[in-house]
Design a protein around this nucleic acid. Structure first.
Lengths: 102, 102
DNA sequence: GCAATAGTACGATAACCATCGTAGTTCGAC
DNA sequence: GTCGAACTACGATGGTTATCGTACTATTGC
């Protein structure tokens, strides 16, 4: 019942992957909403202008880049931003990006 | 002898474009070198692992995203990072990215 | 067991993009 | 004017990626 999807270790997170993951408008919007909510959110709780399968794809990109962590909770997946990891690796980055207006 | 290549105004710079521009390893390396040198540099002065024409393409991406400014100086193009613009729009972002190890 | 919900894997598709080579422009020195 | 250097526009190429739909799995409540 733990994490069944692979996540990169903190040391494995690459800046290019993080930047690329957050460069996509859909993904950036998603992470901003997560930040606004402030707690873990079920994947589907944040509405996106794309289908479920595309959402899965986007979340996968965020997960693999090390931006978010996904854990199972019943039928749902709860997503949390890896703030501690990102702040440790790239101090100030996440705040700068999330506070930027699009 | 002003600028002949179009640059986005400060207000036109979009976070997604900046992130995308800096997500590419070649471009990130280039901007880091520029930062290290600290002054405007002729485009070709920084060695890249790609051909001249690809370098032109990359610099165009950086320019269009609003990350750098290019001006003519004789046959050369001098590139400078738009620190003031980026810091004004996205405080802390550039420093966080440039100080991140790849 | 069935139905509903939440989510994923997979394949297809079209757009995007990094790369290269070619052919050209601009500039400065001679 | 010629030449060389610095650079750019353009087209071709092949890889990548965002998107969708389909078919599936896992879970929960009845």
């Amino acid at each position: 019942m733990s994490e069944d999807l692979p996540h990169p270790d903190r040391a494995e997170i690459r800046i290019e992957a993080v930047l690329h993951a957050l460069a996509d408008p859909v993904r950036l919007h998603y992470v901003r909403e997560m930040d606004r909510i402030g707690t873990g959110v079920a994947c589907g709780a944040i509405e996106l202008p794309v289908t479920k399968s595309t959402r899965t794809h986007h979340l996968r990109t965020l997960r693999e880049a090390g931006v978010i962590r996904l854990r199972k909770e019943g039928t749902a997946r709860i997503a949390t931003i890896r703030r501690d990891d990102l702040d440790a690796r790239y101090p100030g980055l996440l705040n700068a990006i999330l506070s930027a207006e699009s």
